[in-house]
Design a protein around this nucleic acid. Structure first.
Lengths: 195, 195
DNA sequence: GTCTATACCGAGATAGAC
DNA sequence: GTCTATCTCGGTATAGAC
């Protein structure tokens, strides 16, 4: 019960910074990054706009902090996949891992692949890291660079990310959604389907 | 040669309103709707902000005018498809028509399915018309309402729209892109593929 | 260390001059 | 048909209360 202020117990209230990021993500998905004002975030938290400014110096910093956990996972997924030998193994690992990340960060991944505001906010800080999306497409497309595969890969990533974050399927449990999205990817990428 | 100011000849300069909409669409896809200021549009046209305001009363009105031609086509496509008998016929007509619209309005359709700013701007004026996206999903999903089909349909629409508007494929000619996107849709919807 | 009060400037919007 | 003046709101910034 003796929880310190940094890591409160599960039932207790989270610290302001965490609440802020959770609230921001929700508002971002509803109104878009550029469509969400600092005032909206502040109001939703019951504090003033300047209080938000204490925790983050700029709005872009908030956007970055919201997107970071998902981006980190994508980054290391692509690294892992790159190290595998055999194209099929790489594709399967990447597909499975991507679906998993999308399912666990549902709204974030949809927001991330959609919103130009996110891209703009991250271009400053994530230019080096931003290579993962290119590498991901490369792996899925294959060395031949066939147009057929390139388009299928692009459609797979977009379709999986946006469907995973769609409101209609928000009630689905993780396992079910994961299975369906994997199926989408396998159909488009021409990989064998289970069951 | 005696062209009036409303309809100039093909080689002549277009009227300000048309140039404005073309410019706005380009800026919208680059920076998002909310990320595009009236000042940017005005600067790109070489006029002042107030001059833009002469042609359109609000920014939402610009957004609406930009999106309208594509939305109209989607609307009548869904109507046409609904009138066909037989689910396969409806699905095929819808898929083929959707791909065609996406190809001919590439950037617009991607913008439309992505940007929350577009959705917000249109909720006021297009609430009644907005039913087409629901009807489209219904037709593609089928009467059973199986989760499998619902997710595949959602992924197909998102994947086709966003891939069609992607910069990487901007150089593809209409026919080629159309064929590839049709293939994406057919794989996901379980429809027979040509060739 | 966390927040309030307040001010500055850019952007959407309106009214009206030319 | 184009532009100036002006208002309000949003992102940014600082000073200071508790």
């Amino acid at each position: 019960m003796a929880a310190d202020s940094a890591a409160v117990s599960a039932s207790g209230q989270e610290d302001t910074r965490t609440r802020l990021l959770t609230t921001a993500l929700r508002l971002f998905t509803e109104h878009g990054v550029e469509g969400t004002s600092l005032q909206m975030i502040a109001d939703a938290l019951g504090v003033t706009k300047a209080a938000v400014y204490y925790h983050f110096k700029t709005k872009d910093e908030i956007t970055g902090a919201v997107a970071e956990p998902g981006l980190r996972e994508l980054d290391s997924l692509v690294e892992d996949a790159s190290r595998l030998r055999g194209r099929n193994a790489r594709v399967d690992h990447l597909l499975r891992g991507f679906v998993d990340i999308v399912v666990r960060h549902r709204t974030l991944m949809a927001l991330f692949s959609r919103d130009p505001g996110v891209t703009r906010a991250l271009t400053t800080s994530w230019t080096t890291r931003g290579s993962f999306s290119g590498t991901m497409l490369e792996i899925l497309t294959g060395p031949e660079g066939e147009m057929n595969q390139a388009i299928a890969a692009h459609a797979a990533i977009a379709g999986i990310a946006m469907t995973g974050g769609a409101r209609q399927f928000a009630d689905l449990d993780d396992e079910t959604l994961r299975a369906h999205l994997l199926d989408v990817g396998r159909r488009l990428l021409g990989r064998p389907r289970r069951r």
